[in-house]
Amino acid sequence: MTHLVASYDWGLIWTNKAAFLHGLETALEVSAVAIVISVVVGLLLALARMGKPPLSWLAAAYINVFRGVPALVSVIWVYFGWSLVLGINFSVFQAGVIALVLLYGAFISEIYRAALEAIPRGQREAGLALGLHPIRVFVRVILPQATKIAVPNIGSMFIGMVKDTSTFTVIGLLEVVRVTQNINSLTFQPFPLYTAAAGIYVVVAFAVDFLVRAMERLLATPPSGPVARAVNARQRRRVQAVVQRVEAISGAR
């Protein structure tokens, strides 16, 4: 047993750390661009889904279809299919982003729909009663509250995205799994190398979880956590200044 473990070359992980990190960087870049676009697409899909037919039917159909498509199929379809049909040649990076947005836009739209529906009707009514235009009510009142509810689930979606980039090895994107395969083809040490790959994904999941928690604290009311303390301190100073100014004016009367 010991000699078996010892026969694995764990040092390969360290000697190839630059390649692994580069793979991680690529995976994170694709996912980061994709999550930003997916949130926008998801929000628009959610609004369409909550709107009037026939738009709501189209949105529902899209959501139900694309939630069922695996990332591997999506990326092959975009990279090879679209280039044949539309004549557009995407780079592997672009194809990866589009493949993810197609799927995760659908998932995130359902997250946003649930979050938007969770906001009490009175919030919209209060905004309207103040004379705000309905669009402003949405942007300033409803959306911030819904986003706060949606953030933890969007964080989970991001973790899923990073893992799904592993399938983009089929189009040759130099992400973590592709890098692992490349090193393995030269060294024939799949066990330590894929263990390292798995470790990278787990570390990403932990890091994202940490970031999401930080965002949740920032969006909590009242906000807490180190980032919020700085932001909040500034806001409180500003409020205090106004309060003192008004107290001085009314005191002088």
């Binding site: 009490p120 905004g127 309905p134 509250q145």
Partner: peptide, 22 residues
């Protein structure tokens, strides 16, 4: 309706303050 509402203030049974704002 937006212009009409600017002349009218309203207070609700459930307050309906915006929870994300001070």
């Amino acid at each position: 309706p937006v212009e009409l509402r600017r002349l009218v203030g309203m207070v609700f049974q459930q307050f309906n303050l915006f929870p994300h704002l001070t």
